[in-house]
């Protein structure tokens, strides 16, 4: 697992005799040098294009609007007092958490359904269900937007056929929130499905057989065999998706641009509006930085859980 629990060979190969110890150490040293060199491109990439700009963003967030004076944490304090920003925090959490829970849930169901059907038929179904994940998000969101459009809404046409009134899809706060979440779920569920399907396939068949012999029902198998075996993959997928969803820009930007009345703004779109459109780059940077502690908190707990479980399995 990516949490660093894999044990490098060096650790389990202590020198067997005193005479070989020297060469072993040299060997280990050479190995770690090579190991470091192999990681160097990764380190440079991350350092140059993620870590350094991240620190620069922190620096930016501590400047005043004209970027002429250092104001420390002033921007953060200022933001926290603004009602609009409190709304943005609430909405970001609502958007990300609801979307991730739905994606995880539907993805889980889909993976099970998929697992139920014979392998040779799976391919076509998998293919069809992966389509949303495959279309570039910015473009598929445009389609959604077009289907929600007030004058041309294809959904409203269907509603009208059933004698129902038009729904102002993106015009009323809660409906618009629902729409942004729907699009995100539509886009992200296939990824969960594929990850879970992969996990399901790796659960050894013997475990189920053993459970059957013990007289376990379907639900019991699910709770006592499948879920524990999948816990790590669920945790990692949820974490990954949580991060990506929290940082989402495309969907909200294209669908509602934060409206109506700021009721769909999330961190990224609000940062864009404040930082780029209104020319207040330091404040925009502060808005985006608010994501970090929230996500770091989630990541800490998820990864700690994963590490613990991996250790339990290992020992």
């Amino acid at each position: 697992m990516a949490d660093g629990t894999s044990i490098p060979i060096g650790a389990i190969a202590p020198g067997k005799t005193a005479g070989r110890r020297g060469t072993m150490r040299k060997f280990a040293q050479r190995r770690s040098t090579i190991g470091f060199l192999l990681c160097l491109p990764l380190i440079l990439l991350i350092a140059g294009f993620v870590i350094y700009p991240a620190f620069y963003a922190i620096y930016l967030s501590m400047l005043n609007k004209k970027m002429t004076a250092f104001v420390g944490l002033g921007n953060f304090a200022f933001l926290l007092q603004r009602h609009t920003f409190q709304l943005v925090i609430f909405q970001s959490c609502l958007f990300a958490i609801t979307a991730v829970v739905l994606k995880a849930f539907i993805g889980f169901i889909l993976a099970h359904l998929m697992h139920n059907i014979p392998g040779k038929n799976q391919r076509i179904w998998r293919g069809l269900l992966l389509v949303p994940w495959v279309i570039p998000l910015a473009l598929s969101t445009l389609t959604w937007w077009w289907m929600f459009d007030p004058s041309y809404s294809a959904f409203n046409w269907v509603l009208n056929q059933f004698g129902l009134a038009n729904v102002p899809w993106l015009g009323v706060g809660w409906i618009a929130r629902f729409c942004t979440i729907t699009v995100n779920v539509w886009f992200g569920t296939p990824f969960f499905m594929i990850m879970y399907l992969a996990a399901l396939k790796s659960v050894p068949e013997q475990l189920y057989e053993a459970a059957s012999i013990d007289g376990a029902g379907t639900m019991q198998k699910l709770f006592f065999v499948t879920l524990p075996m999948m816990r790590n993959i669920i945790a990692i997928t949820v974490l990954f998706s949580l991060i990506v969803t929290f940082a989402d820009f495309d969907i909200v930007r294209i669908l509602t641009a934060g409206g109506p009345q700021d009721m769909t703004h999330v961190f990224a779109t609000y940062a864009f509006q404040v930082g780029i459109q209104s020319g207040d780059i330091p404040l925009g940077a502060s808005v985006s930085l608010f994501m970090f502690p929230i996500l770091a908190f989630a990541a800490f707990f998820v990864l700690r859980g994963v590490t613990q479980r991996t250790k339990e399995i290992a020992t």
């Binding site: 991350i46 294009f49 993620v50 870590i51 700009p53 991240a54 620069y56 963003a57 930016l60 990954f240 991060i243 990506v244 929290f246 940082a247 820009f249 961190f267 990224a268 940062a271 864009f272 930082g275 780029i276 780059i281 925009g284 940077a285 985006s288 930085l289 994501m291 970090f292 996500l295 770091a296 990541a299 990864l303």
Partner: peptide
């Protein structure tokens, strides 16, 4: 954990 720092934060710096 580099995903914790998303493009929407990085594109300005």
């Amino acid at each position: 954990l580099t995903y914790l720092i998303p493009p929407s934060l990085l594109f300005i710096p």
